[in-house]
Simulated assay, not measured.
Amino acid sequence: MSKLSNKVALVTGGNSGIGLATAKLYKDEGAQVIITARSNETFEKAKKEYGNVFDVVQTDVSKVEDLDRLYAHIKSKYGKLDVIFANAGIAQTAPTAEVTPDFFDNQFNTNVKGVFFTVARALPILAKGSTVVLNASVVASKGFVGSSVYSATKAAVRNFARTWTAEIPVDQVRFNVLSPGPIETPIFGKMGMPDEHKAGMAAGLPIKRLGRPEEMARVALFLASDDSSYLAGAEIMADGGFGQV
């Protein structure tokens, strides 16, 4: 039997990168999958390319009213939710002295507030025995020049899994964390990272290459399925050894 048969799964930011790879794998494993895209442009593109595969809903996770509309739609159409992959996020870097309040707020609103309310607003429709996978990052546990704000957002996400596991009965919802290392996704382009920087980063990894979105999707499937039934509040660093040595 498929690992997510008869499950309803939500993948926020499921229109590209790790989110898209995970949405495809969840679908292949039997789930009905809802994906979100943030802007009009990304929503229309996702609707055109994947509207026959996924239920695509335009949602800015930093806006609680958007999340309320999303969950009203899910409740009306599916009646429940079994899996959340809270993946939507942004990554920006800047030296501490150059960080502006807008720079700070933009990342915290999406990466922390967005993840918090993605989960909090879903609680009334999460089925008993559901799973929530939070997408954090190896930067939550390591320090890098220019990443003070981004790293802090991911450290907050990592702690959400701990606090929610303590607060919400594990037989009701299991919370776990996927913390990727450097993965070859469109986020590099959005950060303006040149190819030579990526090559240098890959050379510095024990595994000597960047990760692939499909590799992260397999970990996200493990955490969403019964294969991880004894994991609660845990973190898997899928980072090619980056944060381990």
Rank of each mutant, 00 (worst) to 15 (best):
Asp171Met: 03
Leu231Glu: 10
Asp227Ile: 13
Met201Trp: 02
Leu210Pro: 12
Ala203Trp: 06
Arg162Tyr: 00
Ser225Ala: 06
Ile187Glu: 00
Asp227Glu: 07
Pro182Ile: 00
Pro169Phe: 02
Gly192Leu: 03
Ala217Val: 14
Met191Ala: 00
Pro194Gly: 08
Glu215Thr: 13
Gly192Asp: 01
Phe188Ser: 00
Gly181Phe: 12
Ala203Phe: 04
Arg209Met: 12
Met193Val: 09
Leu210Ile: 14
Pro206Ser: 10
Phe222Cys: 13
Ala166His: 04
Arg218Gly: 09
Thr185Phe: 04
Glu167Pro: 11
Met201Val: 02
Glu184Ile: 15
Pro180Ser: 08
Val170Arg: 08
Ser225Leu: 11
Arg162Gln: 08
Pro206Ala: 08
Ile183Ser: 01
Met191Thr: 02
Ala224Trp: 06
Ser229His: 11
Met201Asp: 02
Thr165Glu: 03
Glu215Gly: 15
Gly189Trp: 02
Lys198Gly: 02
Met191Trp: 04
Leu231Tyr: 07
Leu223Gly: 11
Asp195Ile: 03
Asp195Met: 06
Gly204Thr: 06
Arg212Gln: 15
Trp164His: 02
His197Asn: 04
Phe175Gln: 03
Met216His: 08
Glu214Asp: 15
Val177Trp: 09
Asp227Gly: 11
Ile207Pro: 09
Gly189Gln: 00
Thr165Gly: 01
Leu178Ile: 07
Glu167Ser: 15
Leu178Gly: 11
Ala203Glu: 10
Asp195Gln: 10
Ala224Glu: 14
Arg218Ala: 15
Ala199Glu: 07
Ser179Phe: 02
Pro206Tyr: 05
Ser228Pro: 13
Met193His: 01
Trp164Ser: 04
Pro213Met: 02
Gly192Trp: 04
Arg209Lys: 12
Pro169Lys: 14
Phe222Arg: 12
Ser225His: 08
Gly233Cys: 00
Pro213Ile: 04
Ala217Arg: 12
Ala217Ile: 14
Phe188Tyr: 02
Ile207Trp: 04
Arg174Phe: 15
Gly204Ile: 14
Pro206His: 13
Arg162Asp: 04
Pro194Cys: 09
Arg174Ser: 14
Gly211Tyr: 11
Ala202Asp: 06
Asp226Lys: 09
Lys190Cys: 01
Arg218Cys: 10
Val219Gln: 09
Met216Arg: 14
Thr165Asp: 00
Ala217Pro: 13
Arg209Trp: 10
Phe175Tyr: 05
Thr163Leu: 10
Arg209Asp: 12
Asp227Met: 13
Ala232Gly: 14
Pro169Met: 05
Val219Glu: 10
Tyr230Asp: 08
Arg162Phe: 01
Trp164Tyr: 06
Gly233Gln: 04
Ile207Leu: 15
Trp164Arg: 07
Thr163Cys: 07
Pro169Asp: 12
Pro206Ile: 12
Gly204Val: 07
Asp171Phe: 03
Pro169His: 14
Gly181Ala: 05
Ser228Thr: 11
Lys208Phe: 06
Ser228His: 13
Ser228Ala: 13
Lys190Asn: 02
Val219Asn: 08
Ser179Cys: 14
Ile207Arg: 07
Asp226Tyr: 11
Asp195Tyr: 00
Pro186Trp: 01
Arg209Val: 13
Phe188Ala: 04
Ile168Arg: 13
Ser228Val: 09
Phe222Tyr: 15
Gly211Arg: 06
Phe175His: 05
Glu167Ile: 05
Arg174Pro: 05
Arg212Thr: 10
Gly204Tyr: 07
Ala203Asn: 00
Val177Pro: 08
